[in-house]
Design a protein around this nucleic acid. Structure first.
Lengths: 220, 220, 220, 220
DNA sequence: TATGAATGAGGCTTCATTCAT
DNA sequence: AATGAATGAAGCCTCATTCAT
């Protein structure tokens, strides 16, 4: 991303490594404590670099936060790209996608927390990021393909909106992680045991598939 | 907002009013800025009372936050109690409940934000509140009744868990409010227009009803 | 001290009891935390009366502190008056007095702490108290009697100053209590065990008696 | 006070100087007003540095207090090390030591006050300081040497405990300074005039020497 | 005589940030 | 590219005391 500096005498300097390290540490801190809750001092202490470097590279606390947010979205969406729905029938493809999304959210709680925090801030920082918009567009494209194929083969209902479908899948997958603390505190349930999560996941898949398969007038 | 008491002689002491006022102001501030983001100074400035009174009545910032959380849950769950599902058939009752829940969440964005904030804090304060657990238990009881009636009349599937059903309804209703900022920023969609919200609501009702009505083995 | 108020309707009122209670509680608090360290709030909370009563009776915090100081001196010196040295030979009388003083200080650590605190404040409050000066004068008178008798009978040296002797006895007795915390923390010793204290006491008596009995020129 | 470094170019950064300055100022304040009575604001105002630096270097008020305590003990015990008892006979050595201790305490009233304050706090901070324990161990070692020599040459009695002897010397020396305010306020005496102090000192030496020289059974 | 409500002033501490090297 | 020292502003909280009843 930047020109390599002359290797002469650059024995210990590793700008990229330093930046990566700062980002990794601060992402954890922001995810843990929020934007105002995170402490620059603490981030610096946990970093291999000094406090001054944070300001050198990221300007200020908000700049660092924004960088974390972008890195998180990029990382998570990159993980989604590995999902291969290629040869599958549309309903199987959708089922796999929903299940994957549910699992993927579970595996990335820090990302979920950053998004929660960003929502608390009314997406103020995300709005300014073209990078993030672009990585999310891909998710919609995937769904659009599946929907078109499903409708062509007659297994999906008409009038399906890919963005709405994304919303529905996200709702079930995101809430599961975002509201785990309050939900667990409020209800004595096994929903967050391993088996409970499997059930929740299966039922999420089922809900989505029932929904896209449902032909109005026929059943209701 | 309330009836003015006799202004003659200018009665000034009004402990209950002061407490209410502090709670109303600080709830807004916590919902807006979070626990660490909210400023006691700002809350005091917006209050009819002095900063000192906040500490007099609520001990410290966290005590005030916890009081807000409890008041919010109590208020919101009290609103739910007004919902009368009495004479309705179980499927109609459930449909009404889901639609109501979706709307109720929309109408109480500050409550949603407080819950988000509480989740960021891993429900640390909610865990210590017996009050909140008790007001939430009622929600489960309502659902249990509907499920039992629906299963007796054969319109609902077996093996429905009221807590899980509550989770599912909550996921769709909560996410709609909690993630509106990021979702709106990420996707150009009409989901958050008035009509889009009506659609989302109707589809949420549909998803839940399809799910509870689905008989395994029969259809899939 | 004050006129009894009409007993009519005075069912629960007990001014003297209230004052005594306030004094007892606040003496403990001042002894424990010092003048600036003690909290009026805490004192009020531990009192049967209200905070307002403290100000009603004692004016302010310093007034209360001064009242505690005077009460403490009066109480302790009153305890000393019970000591009867009547028929004893002067050396026996002095031995008994020293031993008693040593023990008496040990039994009144809160008094010692109040005096320490007063010394921290450079005796600012004690200076203004005629009461306290008068109760202390008695202690000197006792010693003067013993010295005179001891010198008459030839067992005591000449040129003994009762105030100095009081100082010497006090030093050994006071330091034992006042500096127990730091001394114990600094040195691993058995000086503050029951037996250690007995030894310390016996040796204090011995030191004083050796001193008053010592005839210059004869021994050194 | 120290050599001025080259004033050319006005070197401003001087961490050690800043720390020393903070310590010097705050020691005076703590000695004067106690832990809770001292004001961080006041300390900062008297300092060359800013209030923020106090927290930068010492963490909080208690950390600063503890640093003062340690510095005070180190300083005072260092002063004692200069005392050379080398070639003296044991009784002369002890006499010199007692006299020196008496004077040394008088010359360091702020140290005495800090110890008084620490005793009010039940040695809570001193307990956590290994540094202070170590500097005090030296004092005991000195006395142990003298005692052994005195017993070998037969001028001292048996069964002398160096820690107890230290206690006795300390009692007379410490009380003289610690209780000067109340003692002066209570009694009209010349004990705290220059001559009175000389007398008190001489008699303290005499008391200690009489005590260590006293052979039970022989004299009494 | 008695009290809960209320407070101005000031306490200690922490924050993100910048400076001088 | 890198750092320890330094900071103004503002944060939360507590104090002894007084007010209105």
């Amino acid at each position: 991303m930047e020109l390599e500096e002359k290797p002469i005498k650059a024995v210990k300097r590793d700008p990229k490594g330093v930046r990566r390290n700062i980002l990794r540490v601060s992402s954890k801190e922001f995810a843990e404590y929020g934007l105002s809750g995170a402490r620059v001092n603490e981030i610096a202490a946990l970093t291999k670099a000094s406090k001054r470097m944070i300001y050198y590279y990221y300007g200020d606390k908000e700049g660092l936060y924004k960088a974390c947010l972008e890195a998180a979205y990029s990382h998570v969406r990159a993980g989604e790209e590995k999902l291969d729905l290629g040869g599958l029938e549309p309903d199987k493809a959708l089922a796999k996608l929903v299940g994957f999304t549910f699992d993927h959210h579970r595996k990335n709680p820090d990302f979920i927390r950053l998004v929660m925090i960003e929502n608390i801030h009314k997406a103020a920082f995300l709005k300014g990021s073209e990078i993030i918009r672009s990585v999310n567009a891909a998710a919609i494209k995937n769904l659009t393909d599946i929907i078109i194929r499903g409708q062509s083969s007659g297994v999906f209902r008409d009038k399906l909106d890919p963005v709405e479908l994304h919303w529905q899948i996200s709702a079930l997958s995101f809430f599961n992680v975002s509201n785990k603390p309050t939900f667990s505190a409020l209800f004595d349930s096994e929903l967050y045991s391993d088996e409970g999560q499997r059930t929740l996941r299966d039922h999420a898949v089922e809900m989505i598939l029932l929904y896209v398969s449902h032909k109005q007038g026929t059943q209701k």
